[in-house]
């Protein structure tokens, strides 16, 4: 697989969700989610499609306001944060979106440099350019700085989005389906990169259906099903689970039980 699982989490919970409810058009997509993520943890979130994984990531990042419950990040409740507090929190985030979310009015280079420029407006241009080039090489896209997103394939867009999410070495890195549409070799490289960029004092959360590759980098898995946490534990707990669906899901997703 090429990626070694990082050291386990040692700190207390840095992200904590309690009874989180989020509805769309009256329909609950998250229906009382309780979740804690500890400092230094690289967490894998799995589950059937439409179960609420993406919505959960966005609620945890403060992009969606929950209709009920509370999200606390590093001791601060998201509900109590004003615009400035939220902005300061977001400076610590890197987010790979499911739909790439590349700015179509910017080139690849400008897209990747954007989080750095926003966080360090006085950073020397040469330094930013060099970091962008390095990160693009790491996702196998060297020399693509001048291209626009509409000139890229889906897989290339995903890798550019990966480079943008990780360029600022953020403390909280959220990846929403980072390898969807990628070939197996690139997928392994992306998971390797996720493991390598994970900071010992940071938090990385990966939502993916590629459970086989997740096993190489994540020690703890959370399964979200119909807006609820159906399973929370390591692979040993999967073995021990008496929930048929959990065992079947992990088995069919590629984890040998």
């Amino acid at each position: 697989m090429g990626a070694a699982a990082p050291e386990g989490a040692g700190g207390g919970p840095v992200i904590s969700a309690t009874g989180v409810v989020r509805r769309f058009g009256g329909v609950p997509v998250l229906d009382g989610v309780d979740l804690e993520v500890r400092r230094g943890e690289l967490l894998g979130i799995v589950g059937p499609g439409g179960g609420g994984k993406t919505v959960l990531l966005k609620v945890l990042a403060g992009l969606l306001r929950p209709d009920g419950g509370e999200v606390v990040i590093d001791g601060a409740s998201l509900a109590g944060l004003e615009t400035d507090g939220r902005a300061r929190l977001w400076e610590r985030f890197g987010f790979l979106f499911q739909n790439y979310a590349l700015f179509d009015f910017m080139t690849v280079g400008e897209n990747v440099a954007f989080p750095l420029e926003q966080r360090r407006p006085r950073a020397p241009e040469d330094e930013i350019r060099a970091r962008v080039a390095t990160r693009l090489s790491e996702v196998d896209l060297p020399g693509t700085e001048a291209l626009f997103p509409n000139e890229l394939s889906g897989g290339m867009k995903k890798r550019v989005a990966m480079a943008r999410a990780t360029i600022a070495d953020a403390e909280f890195l959220f990846y929403d389906d980072p390898t969807a549409g990628l070939d197996p070799v690139t997928s392994s490289k992306i998971f390797g990169l996720i493991a390598r960029l994970h900071l010992p004092r940071g938090v990385s959360v990966v939502v993916s259906h590629d459970v086989d590759r997740m096993r190489a980098i994540c020690r703890r898995f959370v399964m979200i099903d119909r807006g609820r946490v159906r399973f929370d534990g390591d692979l040993d707990a999967v073995h021990a689970s008496d929930d048929e669906m959990v065992r079947t899901f992990f088995d069919e997703s590629g984890l040998a039980l």
Partner: peptide, 16 residues
């Protein structure tokens, strides 16, 4: 289109 492709969310997360 930028909203549904999450570009607006990405802008906000970059503090823009």
């Amino acid at each position: 289109s930028m909203v549904v492709t999450e570009q607006v969310d990405a802008l906000r997360l970059c503090n823009a």
